[in-house]
Computed example of a mutant assay.
Amino acid sequence: MTGNLSSMTGFARIEGAHDGWRYIWEVRSVNGRGLEWRARLPAGFDALDPEMRKLAKQKLARGTLNIGLTLNKDGQDAGYAINEAMLDNAVAMIEKIRLRIECAPPQAEGLLALRGVIEQAEDEMSEEMREALCAALMTSFAQALDGLADARRKEGVAMGEVLAGQLDMIEKLTADAAANAAAMPAAIRDRISAQLKELLEGAVPEDRLAQEASLLAIKADVREELDRLSSHVGAGRALLAKSGPVGRDLDFLTQELNREANTLCSKAQDMELKRIGLDLKRVIDQVREQVQNIE
């Protein structure tokens, strides 16, 4: 059973209109360590940014947001205007260059092609009209965030099902390792004892061989690692059933799972047990890839 997992990947688009203005919000999100922000707003509407950030923090916990707002006036072309300050600056720079090198004077079309010299003219709006338009934009932006959160939850449900299946596989492989006769302390001790006898035939007293074999068998015992793997699987299922952001907790749990699998592989004295350990590492890597996208 999975709870309300959310992905950090999603998209939403909202169109709206207010008092002769038409606008489109597009909101995308991808993975992020925290709640990161990139917004492209029309000139003159940068004041919306702080309120937008505050609203996003109320609805989302993690992810890198890319937000775009397209705003157009209905039924008329506002035309273009010259940015006098940018033009004066460009002319002054050209005059400095002409003092150093001989060159032709600038042409009008060349100056107008410079970035920032010509820009779209803005219709004059009263303060009341601007405030009303900004309020409508923020209402629509809130709807866009709700749409994004819904898209992230839908993807989170699918990811939760994948993660649940992967935890089932880890549980099965852990059970396979526990059932492997080569993992039993007695089997480990007998195998090590036989290897020592073959290597040290007659060179070491029998009781010393038994003592060394027992010590090596204890070091090769993987029961604690298997117990911890089982415990981590239970913790993972509890996180999947939990509401709210759990991505960081799942990421930490994945590191713990990987640590136990690595230890299992390093301790394994049998090829079959080592194979199980490698299969565990492969599935845990798949879990890690999924978890990177969980909010």
Rank of each mutant, 00 (worst) to 15 (best):
L216Y: 12
A217E: 03
A217I: 10
I218L: 14
K219R: 15
K219Y: 04
K219W: 01
K219N: 11
K219F: 02
A220I: 06
D221K: 01
V222C: 13
V222P: 13
V222A: 14
R223Q: 15
R223V: 04
R223M: 11
E225K: 08
R228Q: 08
R228G: 00
L229K: 09
S230F: 01
S230H: 12
S231M: 09
H232Q: 11
H232T: 00
H232A: 02
H232Y: 14
V233R: 07
V233T: 12
G234S: 10
A235N: 09
R237D: 07
R237N: 03
R237C: 00
A238S: 13
A238Q: 14
L239M: 11
L239R: 05
L240N: 04
L240S: 01
L240Q: 06
L240T: 02
A241F: 01
A241Q: 14
A241D: 04
A241R: 10
K242A: 14
S243R: 06
S243M: 05
S243E: 15
S243K: 09
S243D: 15
G244W: 00
G244T: 01
G244A: 00
P245C: 01
P245K: 04
V246D: 03
V246Q: 14
G247C: 02
G247A: 09
G247E: 10
G247S: 07
G247R: 10
R248L: 11
R248M: 04
D249G: 00
D249R: 15
L250Y: 01
D251I: 05
F252Y: 13
F252L: 09
F252V: 10
L253P: 05
L253A: 06
L253K: 02
T254S: 15
T254V: 12
T254H: 01
T254L: 02
Q255I: 06
Q255V: 12
E256C: 11
E256I: 10
L257C: 05
L257H: 07
L257E: 07
N258Q: 14
N258W: 05
R259E: 09
R259G: 12
E260F: 09
E260H: 01
E260R: 10
A261I: 10
A261P: 13
N262D: 10
N262K: 11
T263D: 11
